[in-house]
């Protein structure tokens, strides 16, 4: 029974990630009118699934077993903890989406896993020191560093393009068309990077229940769920975002996408769950600072920092409450 609940929660989370976060990273390619919606969904779906299955195990390991020490916990506790964490993160994401808050699924699931850890501490199963605080600290540092990395990288990439290609080009519309074609590649890259990082948010807890090593089947379940979310709901989000960022021409979109995907994929290599959406925002600011956009809104930095500060405690508290409740049944 609990396994099914867990699977449904994981699929809901995956659906949500596909509907929102993957869609967020596909906004520019549609905004630039390079590909139509169907092409975007097919390409992003395949790339995302590939990223999840081939490269998703490290972050999944961090989310599943990196924060709460599983030794000394019974399988029942782990199953309850995983369920509590999934439901808590899923609920918070749903509320935040409704409130238009730029909340990250990565932050939510990390907060929720911490809540589960604190629940086991309350039950005297583990001591508070044995929670992997260092890993948690590293993850939180990466939340700060990933948008900054995206910003710096995007600034550099756009500066290079501006100095070398844009400055010499005789026919700017043609140059933009060429970069439009290149964006097909960067979009696949960004979807791949997203899959490698965000699949963990859906299946991290699930893999924790299943056992020691992360199985490709689990990653594939997550990946398929994400693609399903993109196809059934994400196109609306892509459309909204595509309309909003019409100022982002292909040379700018290319810079932002390349910077974001590289940053996120590097984080995946280190097993760090980061927010792709926040990294894109950092990259867009980087392009703006390099003089590539008519007006960049800095208020969003405040919004993003607020969402960090709220998400971890809220997700942790929800998860803690759910865990304690589930354990009483």
């Amino acid at each position: 029974m609990i396994q099914w609940l867990l699977l449904i929660a994981a699929l809901y989370m995956a659906w949500n990630i596909g509907a929102n976060d993957l869609a967020n990273s596909m906004g520019d390619v549609v905004g630039c009118h390079v590909l139509n919606m169907r092409q975007v969904i097919v390409l992003a779906g395949i790339s995302n699934l590939a990223g999840a299955v081939l490269f998703g195990s490290r972050v999944t390991t961090t989310v599943g077993g990196g924060i709460v020490p599983l030794q000394g916990l019974s399988p029942h506790m782990i199953a309850m903890g995983a369920t509590a964490a999934m439901l808590a993160a899923g609920c918070w994401i749903t509320i935040a989406t409704y409130l238009h808050m730029p909340v990250s699924t990565s932050h939510s699931i990390v907060g929720a896993m911490l809540g589960f850890g604190l629940g086991t501490v309350i039950h005297h199963q583990i001591s508070i020191q044995s929670i992997h605080w260092v890993v948690l600290l590293k993850i939180m540092a990466s939340w700060l560093l990933s948008p900054l990395g995206g910003m710096v990288l995007a600034w550099c990439i756009f500066m290079i393009i501006k100095r070398t290609v844009i400055a010499r080009a005789k026919d700017i519309p043609r140059l933009e068309r060429i970069f439009g074609k290149l964006m097909v590649g960067t979009s696949c890259y960004i979807a791949f990077a997203h899959g490698s990082n965000d699949v963990a948010n859906a299946v991290g807890p699930l893999s924790m229940v299943i056992g020691s090593r992360v199985s490709p089947i689990v990653l594939a379940i997550g990946g398929v769920g994400i693609v399903f979310g993109l196809a059934t709901w994400g196109y609306k989000v892509i459309d909204t975002i595509g309309r909003r960022i019409t100022e982002l021409t292909p040379t700018r979109g290319f810079s932002a996408d390349l910077a974001t995907a590289t940053t996120v994929l590097s984080c995946s290599a280190f097993g760090l769950p980061v927010s792709t959406t926040h990294t894109i925002v950092g990259a867009i600011i980087g392009v703006g600072l390099a003089g590539g956009l008519p007006a960049v809104n800095l208020n969003i930095i405040k919004q993003i920092v607020c969402s960090w500060l709220i998400t971890v405690p809220v997700a942790a508290a929800l998860s803690l409450g759910l865990y304690l409740g589930l354990m009483m049944i």
Partner: peptide, 12 residues
């Protein structure tokens, strides 16, 4: 209400 992507680029 279905997007949680912040408005990064302001109107020109």
């Amino acid at each position: 209400r279905y997007a949680r992507f912040p408005r990064a680029i302001a109107k020109s």
